[in-house]
Nucleic acid binder design. Sequence first.
RNA 1: UCCCCGAUAGCUCAAUCGGUAGAGCGAGCGGCUGUUAACCGCUAGGUCGUAGGUUCGAAUCCUACUCGGGGAGCCA
Length: 502
Amino acid sequence: MPNEITRISELKNNVDQIRTIGGWVYHSRPGGKVIFLVVRDGSGLCQCVIEKEKISEELFAQLKKLGTESSLTITGLVKKDDRSVGGYELAVSDAKVLCESVDYPITPKQHGIDFLQKNRHLHLRSQTPWCIGKIRHTLVNAIRQFFNDNGFTLIDTPILTGIIGEEAGSLFNVDYFGDTAFMTQTGQLHLECAALSYGKVYCFGPTFRAEKSKTRRHLTEFWMVEPEVAFIDLPGLLEIAENFVSFIVQKVLRDNRAELETLGANIAALEKITPPFYRLTYTQASEILTSKKTQDFLANQLNEFKAAKQEIENKIVALETEAKDAVKQWRQDKIASELIDLRSELAELETKIENNPKHAKLAAEFQWGKDLGGSDETIISLMHDKPIFVTHYPREAKAFYMKQDDENPKVVRNFDMLAPLGFGEIIGGSMREDSLDNLMDKIKEHGYKLENYQWYLDLRRYGSVPHGGFGLGVERTLAWLTGEKHIRQCIAFPRMMDKILL
RNA sequence: UCCCCGAUAGCUCAAUCGGUAGAGCGAGCGGCUGUUAACCGCUAGGUCGUAGGUUCGAAUCCUACUCGGGGAGCCA
C-alpha cells in the first residue's frame, strides 16, 4: 500500500493524474450533493471534492458523516485550484475509510490551555504544534550542522550524575542502587574533560531542573546544546555564540518561512539577526536599569498599555450596545465571539499593567552585586532589536567554576545572551576557572566537598588551558523564533513543575 | 516558599442591583453543487470546583480547601 500513496506535498507534481492520498479528516463541509473534505497527511492539507454522482450512494453517505480525524485513503484526479487550501485539490472517485472517529475532542473553535495540555497526544495533530515541531526539526539540524561544520566533535555526556554542576536543591534525585544520583542539569563538567582531548566539543541532549518555577520560560525537562572550547577567551566565545545564533536563525528563515508565517512570527525582526550583537557589561546593564531613561521607557510602556486597554474597553462597550439593537442573529453571534476575544486581550493587558510598576520598582532599586532578574532581562531585551550579550557579572552571583576576571576580581568572565524584543535569556556561558588554586578556593567557599571534584580538579593539574563554553536552550530559542508566548508549546510533551500528564 | 487571577453544558464564554441558567461551537436529525472556523431549521445536553456560612432567596457576598493560570525567587 505505501507505494500507492502520494504525499499531499507531492500533489503539485501529479496534476491531472489519478492519485491516492492517505490521511486524516481535518475538516468537513458536507452539502446535499457535494462534500468538501479537507484531509491532512502530515505533509500538508488537501481539499477533496466529492460529488454525489461520481461515487456509490453508500460511500457518499459514509463520507458525509465522517468525523474529524477519521483516517482514510482517498483517490481522485489531482487538479490545480486556487480556491483550495494548498492550491491543489482532489476530484474524488474512490475512498476507503480505515477508522471512523466519533466525537473528536478538539474542535475548530478555541480551547483553553488546560484542555489542550490534557489532550496533548491529540493536540500534536493541530496546526500550531505541527508548525512548531517542523521548525524545531530545522533548528536541531542547524545546531548540529553549525558545530559539525566548524570542527567540533560531538560528546554524549551522562544523564545520571554523581557530581553537581551548580547549586544543589534544584536537581532531581534518583535512587542509584541505594545511593543518591542526580539527573544532569548540565553536561559542562564532563564536557570540559573532552575539550582537553578534542579541543572543540559539544554535547546535545535533555537536561533536568527541579526548580519550582511556574513561568512561561521554564520546563523541568528541556533540551540544551553546550559547546566547550580550549584555547579561547571571552571575546572569542561571544563571536562563536553570535555566529551560531545568526546561523540557526537564517536556516529557519530559509526552510520554514511558511510555518513562521502561519504562526504569526515576527519575520522582519528575525531577518535583522546578523553579527555583531550588542555587548554590555553587567555594570553597564545595571546602570541602564537604574537610569531615568529606563524609568521613562517603562512609564511610557505603561501609558501605551493603558491606552490600549481603554481602546479595548471602548470597543467592548460599542459592541455591547450594538448587540442590544442588532436584530440579525448572525450579527449577534459575531459580536459574541468578538467580545470573547476582546475580553481575553483585556485580561492580558491588565496583567501587564499590574506587573509594569513591580518591574519598574525592581529595576530602579537594582543594586550592583545581585543577579539580573527575569524582569530586568526583559527590560534590557525590550530596549534592543538584536540579541544582547551581558558580560562580567559579580562573582558572588555566579557559579563556582566561572573564571575570575584578572583586572577586576569582583567579577567573572561570563556572559548571558538575551534574545531581543522582550524575550530574554537564551544562552548562559563563561570562561572556566583554569587555575587549580583558585578553583579549590571557590569549591571550598561554596561549601562543596573537595573529594567529589578530584577528577574535575585533575583537568587543572594536567595541562590546564584557558577554556570556556556556553549552553543554549532549545525550547527558549524556539519560543523566541516562533513568537510563542510559552515554551510548553515548544516541546512535544512538556514537563512542568508538578505536572507530568502524558 | 510568597503575591495576583480564575473555576458555570463536551469546548470557549455570558448572566445588570443577590431574584432561581444563556449563546456559539461540538453532538443528533433535516435542507443546500464551490464551501474556506460555510450557511439555514429543529433536538438533546447543567448538583454553577468542594465544604461550610450570611440571607426570605446565592452562580453572584464571606471563610476554608482542591485544582488550574500568571508572576517573584532561581534559571536555558
